[in-house]
């Protein structure tokens, strides 16, 4: 079986944002928080726009053939980490056949001055999040699933 090459963000379980120029992600199910470094930020952006990891690697390796093996393997490993953390899930469809021109240019530039994509994972605020009313209140009110959270008390 061929490994998937198309991915999408595991919404609504995953939320993400660029804050002060830094890409941050939160898996609301696991409570793990992540930030991306190196070429990880632009690879993530390209996946958001197209869902196409294979094409991201093609663009990057074409831009820097000298280290194409390194680029290919590190981006593949990076995406595997994102999938392993359930931040990305395989997709059947391409979001778009092309990313924004600006994103593709940044992808090429990141390959030419390559810094391996990196994902950092943090767990230290996990419990505070799970105990936050902001986390529980849904648009329709109090979730029925709260019965299964283990937070039920006296």
């Amino acid at each position: 079986m061929k490994a998937p090459t198309l991915f999408k963000v595991n919404e609504p379980n995953v939320i993400y944002e660029i804050v002060d120029g830094e890409t941050i992600l939160l898996n609301l199910n696991s409570g793990y928080f992540f930030n991306l470094e190196g070429s990880g930020e632009i690879v993530w952006q390209y996946i958001l726009e197209t869902g196409n990891v294979k094409k991201a690697i093609q663009i990057m390796t074409s831009a820097n053939r000298k280290i194409r093996e390194m680029i290919s393997s590190s981006v593949t490993e990076f995406v595997a980490l994102l999938v392993n953390e359930k931040l990305l899930v395989p997709s059947d469809t391409v979001e778009s056949s092309h990313g924004l021109q600006e994103t593709e240019e940044k992808l090429k530039a990141s390959a030419q001055n390559f810094s391996p994509p990196k994902m950092n994972k943090y767990a230290d605020n996990q419990n505070v999040l799970f105990f936050s009313a902001s986390y529980f209140i849904e648009e329709k009110g109090w979730p029925e699933s709260i019965e299964n959270t283990g937070l039920i008390g006296v």
Partner: peptide
């Protein structure tokens, strides 16, 4: 729990949760 709980707007709430995490980081 009522129709005007401030955290019912999930998009807005999620943005500020991420911002709080970033500040912690």
């Amino acid at each position: 729990i009522h129709e005007k709980n401030s955290t019912r707007d999930k998009n807005k709430t999620n943005f500020y949760i991420l911002l709080a995490y970033k500040k912690s980081l």
